[in-house]
Design a protein around this nucleic acid. Sequence first.
DNA 1: CTCGACCGATACCCTGGTGATATGGATCAT
DNA 2: ATGATCCATATCACCAGGGTATCGGTCGAG
Lengths: 294, 294
Amino acid sequence: MDHLETRQLRYFVAVAEEQHFGRAAQRLGMAQPPLSRAIRDLERQLGVQLLVRTSRRVALTPAGQTLLDEARIALDAVATAGNRTRHAGQDVPALRLALKADHDAGLLPKILDAYDVLPVRLLLGGYGEQLPALHDGRADVALMTTPFDERGLDSEPLITGPRLVAMAASDPLAARTSLRLADLAGRLLPYGTPAEKGFPKPPFDPHEPLDHSQIFSLIEVGSTVWYLPVWLAERFARPGIAYRPVEELEPATLTVAWPARSRSAAVAAFVRTAQRVARETAPYDNLFPLVHPV
Amino acid sequence: MDHLETRQLRYFVAVAEEQHFGRAAQRLGMAQPPLSRAIRDLERQLGVQLLVRTSRRVALTPAGQTLLDEARIALDAVATAGNRTRHAGQDVPALRLALKADHDAGLLPKILDAYDVLPVRLLLGGYGEQLPALHDGRADVALMTTPFDERGLDSEPLITGPRLVAMAASDPLAARTSLRLADLAGRLLPYGTPAEKGFPKPPFDPHEPLDHSQIFSLIEVGSTVWYLPVWLAERFARPGIAYRPVEELEPATLTVAWPARSRSAAVAAFVRTAQRVARETAPYDNLFPLVHPV
DNA sequence: CTCGACCGATACCCTGGTGATATGGATCAT
DNA sequence: ATGATCCATATCACCAGGGTATCGGTCGAG
């Protein structure tokens, strides 16, 4: 009848995600027997069966699924408490801005120049790392490209531009003026979309997503094509790579996002500054120089 | 650099709220020295000073205030995980409805009669207990009277009616047909409003709020007056107590509320049922029988 | 059908985290 | 000056929580 400890939740989440006590124990850096015991004690404590163990596999009960969902939320909240507190204790207060390098549509220098409320610390994370950083309190505000999971966040759009396809300049499709998604079907590497659960096994090392240089190398030799917002295309314009509009491709919106219940004046001022800078920036309405470079 | 445990957060919240290690330890059912050590270790772990100890008082640093806020949220999320899981493990699924007895405007029987998705378990709590029950997962849905703290909740209004003042029939003010708030200033017991932090010491035992019978006894002998929604007045109409409208008193709205991110079909159906029942119920537009009983 | 591989549970041991007691040192009220 | 108050330190004890060895049940290969 005692209180739950985060250790119990971490253990359960590991087992539930791995569906395997041995791997979960390995991931947690411990042996399997104490983990089994911890899960059994947790079930006793809650008075609920969480897992169905056949000697061959482990499956979640409905109650177990509930706990998995809720425990993720709770662990996130605990991590947030720690991260926010660590940050609040720094003697030099700062605004922590999470973004992916080159995904700022060129606005970043102007925003940083115009924002003088606090010093800004940049957290340059890879693809999809901005969202968790906002959620667990490592970042105060983030620049992200739509679409993203907006639950728990407030956001304001900054600037919108078309998405283009990047392909080898030598690609036969590059000769066409108009492309459709169907023309490009099957040409994308599986990394093209965020890693989902049940991520299908890619042909080679799935652990490390490709960085920009790697991606553009593959594009240049015709191994893949890539969808990307116009501001990224602009930054990576080079001979050997052609950018073309695609009819059905939704435009991308660069967005500033922050935790929903943030009442920080520094964040609010940053958002206003970013919006003002975005308004003063020319929209992406002329693709001619990019699609037809000299 | 390890993970935070809820035990550490509970300890810190106790100390921060009591501003006193001894009382906090007592509240936690432990001795003071291990509590002091736990807080010191927590500060080491976070690398942040949380409390300023003079040998006379304990005060929060800004980082400590941050942790207090965040830890409350995190502890709530952990409690929610446990409560929701316990509930999901019950073999008889049920909808848990939190409300205060008599605060249903007479809708409850009709709602329960019309709602057939799940059996309904009533959680009859005292004043202000509905909100925490929703937040920590003990209840799926609640009936509450506006105003209440809507953060983290979704809600739909059911029925609106005026608030009245209840006073002794013998009270000189009962002879008047029109009352204003100023006429009643200072006549309310301090229990009239929810307990805030820094709750001023009431004249007698502050621990247990008064129940309805106690309140109406005090009203009947002229010791206090009371503001209450018309549906409560209706239920407690009796000789010896007079109900009068008060000009500036905002009307009350009986509301059905549920956790914001609930995607439960059972809750959604309950809300629809409650709204339909409320629409079919006569509004409170004729106060004559209540104010001028036979 | 049999045997080996796999996987979770059980039994048992041991260490360190967590709690208790005793006491010190600092501050404030009288 | 002296006692009261209150947090920190020192020290001890216990068991919660982690490790190793092993068991028992299930599935698949041959």
